[in-house]
C-alpha cells in the first residue's frame, strides 16, 4: 500500500518538479532585480490576491450592500437607501413577539437561533466533558474509543442530515424501535418541538467529538501529581473533580464554549438538510434566513440579507474577541503560575 502510494506520488511529482524548475529562471531574475525581500512579495502574492478579492473586498463592500435597496446584484446599479434595511430588520413593537415586527421572519430566526445556541452549547459542553473525562481514564484501547466519538465530525452536513432524516422519518428506525417496544410511533420531523429537539440533538451528535478532543487535551495537561496528592489525602472523587479538575480545566473549557457558540450562531447545513427549516419556520435559523432572503426566495432582497449578515457578523466578532481575550488571559495566568 505504502509502496504503491509512494510510487504514485513519485509519478505525480515529476511534472510538478519540472514546472517548479521552469519557474526558477524568472524567479531568479525577479530576485536579482528586487533583492531578497522583493521575493517576500512574490511568495505572498497568490494567497493575498485570492484572499483580497474573495474575502477582504467582499467584507468591505458588504457594508455598502447593506445600505442599498432593490433587486439588482451589481453594486453600482443599486440605489442608496441609507439605514433603511437596518430599520426594517430592527423595527419591532414588542421584541419578545416576532409577529409584531416588520420583518417577522428575521426575528423568528433570531429567536430560534438564540434558543438553539443556549441549549446546544450547554448540552454539548456537558457531553463533551463527560466523554473527555471517560476517555482520560485508564481504559483499554483508548485511541479506538477516541476515534469512535470523532467519527461523525468528519461526515458532511448533508450526509449527517440525510442519515438522521432517514432514521427519524415516519417509517424510520426510531419509530420501528418504539413500535416494537410497545410505544406509539410519532412523526418527529413534522412536530415543532421534536424537530427543534432533533436539530439540537443531531448537531450535537455531529460535533461533540471535536470538542471532546479539545477538552481531553486540556485534561491531559493537568499535572498528575495533583491527583496523587489528593489520593494521599483520601479526597473523595467528586471533590477531586470540583476542586482540581474543573478549575484547572476552566480556561480550556471557556475556549470550547466560545468556539461552540461561534459555530452554533452560524448553524445551517445539517439542519437545513434535516428539516428544511420546518415545520413552518420552527427550525429556521439566521444563516438560513440570510440564504432565503438573499438567494432562494422569489422576492430576493440582497440588501436586506446583507444587513442581516452584518448583524450576525457583529455578534461573531464580539464572540471572537471574547475568545481572544480568554486565550490571552489564560496565557498571562500560565506565566504567573
Amino acid at each position: 500500500m505504502a509502496g504503491v502510494l509512494g510510487r504514485a506520488a513519485g509519478v505525480l511529482a515529476a511534472p510538478v518538479a519540472w514546472a517548479a524548475a521552469l519557474v526558477d529562471r524568472p524567479m531568479r531574475a525577479w530576485q536579482n532585480a528586487t533583492g531578497t525581500n522583493g521575493m517576500a512579495a512574490v511568495f505572498l502574492a497568490p494567497n493575498m490576491l485570492i484572499f483580497g478579492v474573495f474575502v477582504l473586498f467582499p467584507l468591505v463592500i458588504n457594508i455598502a450592500y447593506s445600505m442599498t435597496g432593490g433587486t439588482a446584484l451589481f453594486l453600482p446599479d443599486r440605489t442608496f437607501v441609507g439605514a433603511a434595511q437596518y430599520e426594517r430588520l430592527l423595527s419591532c413593537a414588542d421584541y419578545t413577539d416576532p409577529k409584531t415586527c416588520e420583518e417577522d421572519q428575521f426575528w423568528i430566526a433570531v429567536r430560534n437561533t438564540g434558543v438553539f445556541v443556549v441549549f446546544q452549547v450547554a448540552l454539548m459542553t456537558v457531553v463533551a466533558v463527560v466523554t473527555a473525562l471517560i476517555l482520560n481514564r485508564e481504559i483499554r484501547g483508548r485511541s479506538f474509543w477516541r476515534a469512535v466519538f470523532f467519527f461523525p465530525v468528519l461526515l458532511s452536513p448533508v450526509v449527517v442530515g440525510l442519515i438522521w432524516r432517514w432514521i427519524l422519518q415516519r417509517d424510520g428506525l426510531l419509530n420501528a424501535a418504539l413500535f416494537q417496544l410497545g410505544f406509539t410511533p410519532h412523526v418527529w420531523l413534522t412536530d415543532r418541538f421534536w424537530a427543534f429537539a432533533a436539530a439540537i440533538g443531531v448537531s450535537i451528535w455531529a460535533h461533540v467529538g471535536f470538542y471532546a478532543l479539545i477538552v481531553l487535551a486540556g485534561l491531559q495537561a493537568i499535572p498528575k501529581d495533583l491527583y496523587e496528592a489528593a489520593e494521599m489525602d483520601g479526597t473523595k472523587p467528586g471533590r477531586v473533580f470540583w476542586r482540581i479538575t474543573l478549575p484547572l480545566l476552566m480556561p480550556n473549557l471557556l475556549v470550547v464554549i466560545v468556539l461552540a457558540l461561534i459555530r452554533a450562531v452560524q448553524i445551517f447545513d445539517e439542519v437545513f438538510v434535516l428539516t428544511g427549516g420546518g415545520p413552518g419556520t420552527s427550525t429556521m435559523f439566521l444563516t438560513q434566513y440570510i440564504y432565503e432572503v438573499g438567494f432562494a426566495s422569489l422576492l430576493k432582497n440582497p440588501g436586506l440579507a446583507s444587513a442581516a449578515s452584518i448583524l450576525m457578523g457583529g455578534v461573531l466578532v464580539v464572540l471572537t474577541l471574547v475568545q481572544l481575550a480568554v486565550a490571552r488571559r489564560n496565557e498571562a495566568k500560565g506565566k504567573r503560575q
Binding site: 467584507l59 453594486l75 440570510i290 438573499g294
Partner: peptide
C-alpha cells in the same frame, strides 16, 4: 498582513455571502 489574515478568522463565509456572490457573478 498577519493581522488582516487573523481578522478574517472572525468572518466566516456565511457573513459575506451576498457580496461574494456578486463578485463571483
Amino acid at each position: 498582513v498577519m493581522l488582516l489574515i487573523l481578522a478574517t478568522l472572525m468572518v466566516p463565509l456565511s457573513v459575506i455571502l451576498v457580496p461574494l456572490y456578486s463578485i463571483i457573478s
